[in-house]
Design a protein around this nucleic acid. Structure first.
Lengths: 256, 256
DNA sequence: AACCACAGGATTGGATATCAATCAATAAGA
DNA sequence: TCTTATTGATTGATATCCAATCCTGTGGTT
């Protein structure tokens, strides 16, 4: 393992991506240092990493907060994601070998089975992972890291937005992109990728306020003992009472 | 100004991009803390920022060093850069208004004048800036940041590589890309962007070893007093004696 | 002479205590 | 009620200290 601050940054990242820490949530140094039982300095370093990743924002003399991207940010992030995935698609349509196409098809198939067997959580994860697998096949680590960062930020976005669309379309989109690319219909594939992301963004409605349901201590508790990789609760799923709509996010209610 | 560690990270970044701090150079915490007259902890935070940006690498219990990208890294970085700029080109060909095209043409014109008047240093800066202006016109801050990071890493690469190519081609390429895009010949423009970067990479030869010519203290001295923005010496330009070849980098000897 | 082991120094990673600056919220006063 | 002052809390940063680790150089052994 590298440094303590990296490990803590990873835990915070997971908590944010799991929507246990919602945008705007204060990340107090003292509080976190007590939770993780480290000094404030380590926490500060972790927060710097998070801020560099776009998941937190640090305000001078005010502290760190889980980032609260604007609607403008959201569009820019999805634009960038589209750009990257279209570019990767163009590369893959030239360079990808049979094994690569097989891997992609296999991934979609696994997701389809998950949907069929009603394992929505798994289907959700696989659906997001598809994009990652897709980019990994470009064999470009730099690109992978850029893409992963964008994906993290879209995941963060889902804490802020309400989505209401047909999840099955996304799965079909994945399959169709593979099909189109393999047939060399690059232009159509790229348009589908664009439409794919646009359909997501279009379904999004920015909710002005987000009420933190969990304190940082509650949110982070599941990650503390795990040596990283054990699989803590993937989602909070607590009822808010007055604002349940804000809690629903994109891929959760799979296969409506 | 934000935090002290950010300011110091910026200075280190500039020193690295100016090739005053060369790849592999040790960035000792004690040494830097004395140079900047801050505590080691601030330096640590700065180094974390640099590492997150890909400009430094931190080895546990060994310390931080200016990153020494491999040839593989170099290719991946240029691949990613090509992908991003091609994507932006596709966006601009649709969306850019007359004012945007004018700005691009004006930029190229300024560079042409700099070349004509023999101001190689300015021409060099403008030549690199073109890509940044190009991406800025996409009006996507996320994309801009991604692109800027990639550009920083290519600049770092130039500390490691030997390039020998006709600089004028690059200037012409910029003009031609604008021309092609404006005429709606997107495909050709994208191919030119690809060729543009490929011509750079192809001219690169990785030099195994780089001998640090400047100690961190010497390298950073020009940045210390400036309140950021004054313009310290842009390049070291010290003779190495036995390895002068390794010092020449891409855009330096403009308009050969 | 070559090689291994071990001890010491140097450096990093981190903890703790402390201080100044700043922000926020309350309390006092007009 | 509105404005201002004080107070408390939090961050930014420093100094000092300690443990773990890496590097090196020495010395003994073969």
């Amino acid at each position: 393992m590298s440094s303590r601050s990296q490990a803590i940054a990873d835990m915070l990242t997971r908590a944010i991506l799991d929507h246990r820490l919602v945008p705007g949530c204060k990340l107090g140094e003292r509080e976190l240092s007590e939770i993780f039982d480290v000094s404030r300095i380590v926490i500060r370093q972790s927060l710097i990493r998070l801020a560099d990743d776009g998941l937190a924002q640090i305000e001078r003399n005010r502290g760190a907060f889980v980032a609260r991207p604007s609607m403008q940010d959201a569009m820019e992030i999805y634009d960038a994601l589209t750009l990257v995935e279209q570019g990767v698609a163009a590369q893959l349509s030239d360079r990808l070998g049979p094994a690569g196409w097989a891997e992609l098809r296999q991934h979609v198939e696994r997701q389809r089975q998950a949907v069929a067997s009603g394992n929505d959580a798994l289907a959700d994860v696989l659906g997001q992972e598809f994009h990652t697998v897709f980019v990994r096949l470009s064999r470009n680590k730099v690109m992978q890291e850029i893409h992963a960062q964008l994906v993290r930020r879209t995941t963060l976005l889902r804490s802020l937005i309400t989505a209401d669309f047909d999840y099955c379309n996304l799965l079909d989109d994945h399959a169709r992109v593979i099909e189109l690319l393999e047939k060399g219909r690059l232009k159509q594939a790229m348009e589908l990728i664009d439409a794919h992301h646009r359909s997501v963004v279009r379904g999004y409605i920015m909710d002005r306020q987000v009420f933190p349901e969990l304190t940082p201590r509650e949110a982070l508790e599941p990650y503390l003992d795990t040596k990283a990789g054990e699989a803590p609760q993937p989602a909070p799923r607590k009822k808010t009472g007055d604002n349940g709509k804000a809690r629903a996010h994109a891929h959760d209610h799979a296969a409506k």
